[in-house]
């Protein structure tokens, strides 16, 4: 595969052809906030809307995870417009997120915290009215805990579970009720989950955590 040279935040970088801006940036130590991107995934979900960047010559900000790199492309990850879009998306997520980092197993490894810090957004954002989901925590699995209240609906666990041919969890309902669950909302421990823990390791926040870490 041939490589492509482009500029991200005034830095000249090279990356393999076919890659998206997001991975080209991350591989070159330039952070772009992201929650839903999976490197191996060929059809990015592009659902978190945190990875907006500006590309010279494009009239509007684009999501870095879906935009393929091109030769000579000039990317700005700090544009006012793209950052304001990303901030809004993040604040909406935080508005329904129980911010209790001190008691959360994902504290300091949480992608929400990282994105908030980068974008200059307070975790206890006041811009939107707080609206929590207040769903029961699922501790039916012998080795992990699923807290749907902390879930940001990035879909990584769902993708992974399907990719592995298990398909124990998926999305259900829609709108504010949308959640990751197993068939008929039964506890995950009673589903066809085989406790591989792949969903736990891919979860960018503290929604899926190993029991031994709590």
């Amino acid at each position: 595969m041939s490589s492509i040279t482009l500029t991200i935040d005034n830095k000249k970088v090279t990356a393999p052809e076919g890659q998206s801006i997001l991975w080209a940036a991350l591989d070159n130590d330039i952070y772009i906030p992201n929650l839903c991107a999976i490197r191996e995934r060929t059809d990015p979900a592009a659902s978190c809307r945190l990875c907006f960047v500006e590309v010279e010559g494009k009239p509007m900000p684009v999501t870095a995870c879906t935009e393929p790199i091109t030769e000579g492309m000039v990317v700005n990850t700090k544009g006012t417009e793209s950052q304001s879009l990303a901030r809004t998306a993040l604040e909406l997520l935080l508005a329904s997120h129980p911010v209790d980092c001190g008691h959360c197993a994902a504290n300091n490894s949480c992608e929400l915290q990282k994105a908030a810090k980068h974008l200059g957004v307070k975790l206890n954002t006041k811009r939107y009215r707080k609206l929590l989901k207040e769903l029961p925590i699922d501790d039916s699995s012998p080795i992990f805990i699923y807290d749907p209240n902390k879930c940001v609906l990035c879909g990584k666990c769902v993708w992974k579970c399907h990719e592995l041919g298990i398909g124990a969890i998926g999305f259900a309902y829609r709108g504010f009720d949308r959640m990751v669950t197993s068939f008929a909302g039964q506890p995950i421990g009673q589903s066809n989950c085989n406790q591989c823990m792949e969903c736990v390791s891919i979860c960018p926040v503290g929604a899926l955590v190993a029991k031994e870490n709590t």
Partner: peptide, 25 residues
């Protein structure tokens, strides 16, 4: 009913949860 959704998932050879996703959407 659950029984119907499970049967349909089996017929299409897809995970049960995928049927449930669509039904609840």
């Amino acid at each position: 009913p659950h029984e119907a959704m499970l049967g349909i998932a089996e017929f299409l050879d897809i995970p049960d949860i995928d049927v449930y996703s669509v039904v609840t959407f």
